[in-house]
C-alpha cells in the first residue's frame, strides 16, 4: 500500500482513498468524525493563480486541543492553516474552494464576514509582528476596534487578563507603555498571543510560532500553548517534529498539497501508516 501511495503521490489523497477503501486494502487513517469537531473541511482546495497548492483536503479539527500540521516546506500546511481565518482572501490571486464548516456553519458562505470571523479565529505568525506601539496598545487594539470595553477600567482589565493568559504579565506589568517592538523575540510572540486572546477568540492558529525563537523562549511558548489548549482550539504549523510530538494531541502530515496521514499524535510518531510520513518524521525526507 505504501508502495502504491508513493508511486502515485501526484494523485490526491482524497481521490485515492475511496478506491483503496473499496479494495479493502487500507484502513482510513484520517479520523473524519469527532464528537467535538470545531472545523469540518470537505474537499478544500487552495489555488494561487493557476497553481493548486492544496488538492482537496478532508479533515476535521477537534475543539479544545492542539492539532499540529507538519510536512516539508511547500506542502501546503500554511495555506491550509490560513483557510480557517480566511487570511488567504488577502493574498492577490488566491482562491479557496470546498467547504469549511466552523461549528457547522460554512465560513466561506456569503453571510460570514471575514473580519468578524478573524475575531473568532485568532492567528499568530512565524515572525513576531507586534504593532510598533506600546505593549498596552498592542493588546488593547483588538478590544478597541471591536468595542469590547466600555470604560478604561474595563479595557485595563482585558489587557491584564490577556497578558496573564499570554504568560507575559509578570514580565511587562511595570512597563506597559514601552514599545512592544522593544521586547525580546519570545516575549514579542507571547505579546502577539495575548493580542489575539484579547478579542476573546475560539480558535488560535499558529504558523510556526517558535521558528524564530531560541530554545528557552520556545520552551516557554510550548508551556503556554499547553495551558491555552484547555480553553481554545489550537491549530499549529510546525517544522519541529519534537515540538509537534510534545504539544499536540492530533497530528496531520501534509505532502505536496495532500493530506497524507492524520491521527493521534502518539500514533503518527510511533507507528505511522504511510511510508512518506515515516520517512519525514525519521528525517529521511523533508
Amino acid at each position: 500500500m505504501t508502495q502504491l501511495l508513493t508511486s502515485t503521490n501526484k494523485v490526491s489523497y482524497r481521490a485515492l482513498t475511496p478506491e483503496l477503501e473499496l479494495m479493502g486494502q487500507v484502513n482510513v487513517t484520517t479520523e473524519t468524525e469527532f464528537d467535538n469537531a470545531k472545523f469540518t473541511c470537505r474537499d478544500v482546495r487552495v489555488h494561487y493563480g493557476s497553481l493548486e497548492a492544496l488538492h482537496g483536503i478532508d479533515m476535521n479539527i477537534q475543539d479544545n486541543g492542539v492539532t499540529a500540521l507538519i510536512g516539508p516546506s511547500g506542502c501546503g500546511k500554511s495555506s491550509f492553516l490560513r483557510v480557517f481565518n480566511r487570511m488567504n482572501d488577502t493574498i492577490t490571486g488566491a482562491r479557496v474552494s470546498g467547504e469549511v464548516l466552523m461549528d457547522g456553519q460554512d465560513i466561506y458562505s456569503n453571510d460570514i464576514d471575514p473580519v468578524l470571523l478573524r475575531a473568532r479565529v485568532g492567528m499568530v505568525f512565524q515572525k513576531p509582528n507586534p504593532f510598533p506601539k506600546s505593549i498596552y496598545d498592542n493588546v488593547a487594539y483588538g478590544p478597541r476596534i471591536h468595542g469590547l470595553a466600555e470604560t478604561r477600567v474595563e479595557l485595563d482589565g482585558i489587557v491584564e487578563t490577556s497578558l496573564r493568559k499570554g504568560g507575559l504579565w509578570e514580565e511587562v506589568k511595570d512597563r506597559l507603555d514601552d514599545p512592544g517592538t522593544g521586547l525580546s523575540g519570545g516575549q514579542q510572540q507571547r505579546l502577539v498571543i495575548a493580542r489575539a486572546i484579547a478579542v476573546d477568540p475560539e480558535v488560535i492558529l499558529m504558523d510556526e510560532p517558535a521558528s524564530a525563537l531560541d530554545p528557552i523562549a520556545t520552551a516557554k511558548l510550548e508551556v503556554l500553548i499547553d495551558e491555552l489548549k484547555e480553553n481554545y482550539c489550537i491549530v499549529i504549523v510546525t517544522h519541529s517534529m519534537a515540538q509537534a510530538a510534545r504539544i499536540s494531541q492530533k497530528t496531520a502530515f501534509f505532502h505536496m498539497g495532500d493530506l497524507v496521514e492524520y491521527g493521534e499524535t502518539a500514533k503518527i510518531f510511533s507507528n505511522p501508516e504511510d511510508k512518506r510520513t515515516q520517512d519525514y518524521i525519521t528525517g529521511r525526507t523533508g
Partner: peptide, 27 residues
C-alpha cells in the same frame, strides 16, 4: 511597510481599511 503588520491587524479582526489607516499609514 512590512506586510506582517497588516496581517497582524487583520488577524485580530481589523477591517482592511482599519489595517491601512491604523497601522500602515502611520508607519
Amino acid at each position: 511597510v512590512s506586510p506582517s503588520i497588516r496581517d497582524g491587524a487583520l488577524s485580530v479582526g481589523a477591517s482592511h481599511i482599519q489595517a491601512v489607516f491604523h497601522h500602515k499609514l502611520p508607519l
